[in-house]
């Protein structure tokens, strides 16, 4: 009984060590950067504003098809939160922000200037078919709950500016704050918020689940999306290549198909 017991115990330990080795090997391969001659390669981490979700998923797939050695890891959040994560040292190679102001702290250190690559204005979003008949910003004052992005997130900042600029005052206890543009959209499409203010491209991406109401140009805001390379970026080859690809005719066509305008 004794020897057999000891043996099986050792076997367990060996199996555990083996698993650990496998796990660490897995980590190692995913973060290795294999510069293969002139061909760019490796993994780039692209952190993007949540409103870019659908467009960037397509663009990343297309980019990977052009550069089979490169893997693009995408992460989406509100630009303000990404900026805070970068400030805390998050290992991000490229930051696509919905607000130029948010890239300022990193752009001074960046090897190349930030590039503007897309624009979108904002819209009122309502439930599918606009059951409450919302026509203008002032109608928002009479609905029960309006979903807005967090005040620091670009879409929240723009929405607050738009409301202030058009003289519509919503009381705080009728505003629910979601952390990003996509979460704000979700509060209207899936949740019980009556209306919200998000990017026009978000309304388009929601398809039949939401109906948009145009905000007049005089009161609207055009968000300019910029991309910047983070200075401590691991992948010095692929990151500029992805940045350049965003200005290519192909990427511009993709962005336009998702409702963005391009410079």
């Amino acid at each position: 009984m004794g020897p057999a017991r000891v043996f099986s115990r050792w076997r367990c330990a060996a199996a555990a060590v083996g698993l650990l080795a496998l796990a660490s090997a897995g980590c190692a391969t995913s973060s290795s950067t294999s510069g293969n001659g002139s061909q760019v390669g490796g993994v780039i981490v692209v952190a993007a504003a949540s409103s870019l979700t659908e467009a960037f998923q397509t663009i990343a797939t297309d980019f990977e098809a052009l550069h089979p050695q490169v893997t693009v890891d995408l992460t989406f959040d509100s630009s303000s939160r990404i900026a805070a994560q970068i400030d805390e040292g998050a290992p991000i190679d490229l930051f696509a922000s919905a607000d130029e102001a948010l890239v300022e702290p990193v752009v001074d250190l960046s090897p190349r200037p930030a590039t503007a690559f897309a624009m979108s204005d904002l819209q009122i979003v309502t439930k599918s078919g606009n059951p409450l008949g919302i026509r203008s910003l002032s109608d928002l004052a009479s609905v029960d709950v309006v979903a807005l992005c967090a005040p620091k997130a670009p879409c929240g900042k723009y929405a607050d500016e738009i409301l202030a600029g058009s003289g519509v005052a919503l009381s705080a206890d009728h505003i629910t704050r979601a952390d990003s543009a996509k979460a704000t959209l979700g509060a209207v499409t899936y949740g019980d918020a009556d209306a919200g203010i998000v990017y026009s491209t978000d309304v388009l991406a929601a398809g039949d689940n939401a109906t948009g109401v145009v905000i007049p140009k005089a009161h609207n805001h055009t968000a300019i999306y910029v991309i910047v390379q983070i200075v401590n970026t691991k992948n010095k080859m692929a990151a500029p290549s992805f940045m350049a690809y965003l200005s290519s005719p192909e990427a511009k066509a993709t962005l336009r198909s998702f409702g963005f305008s391009t410079p």
């Binding site: 939160r81 805070a84 709950v145 979903a147 967090a150 705080a172 206890d173 009728h174 505003i175 629910t176 704050r177 979601a178 952390d179 509060a187 949740g191 019980d192 918020a193």
Partner: peptide, 18 residues
């Protein structure tokens, strides 16, 4: 939801104010 004074509890406030 996340409405100030109505449904914004302390954990929600931590997340929003971060």
């Amino acid at each position: 939801g996340n409405i100030e004074g109505r449904t914004r509890t302390a954990p929600l406030a931590v997340y929003l104010l971060l």
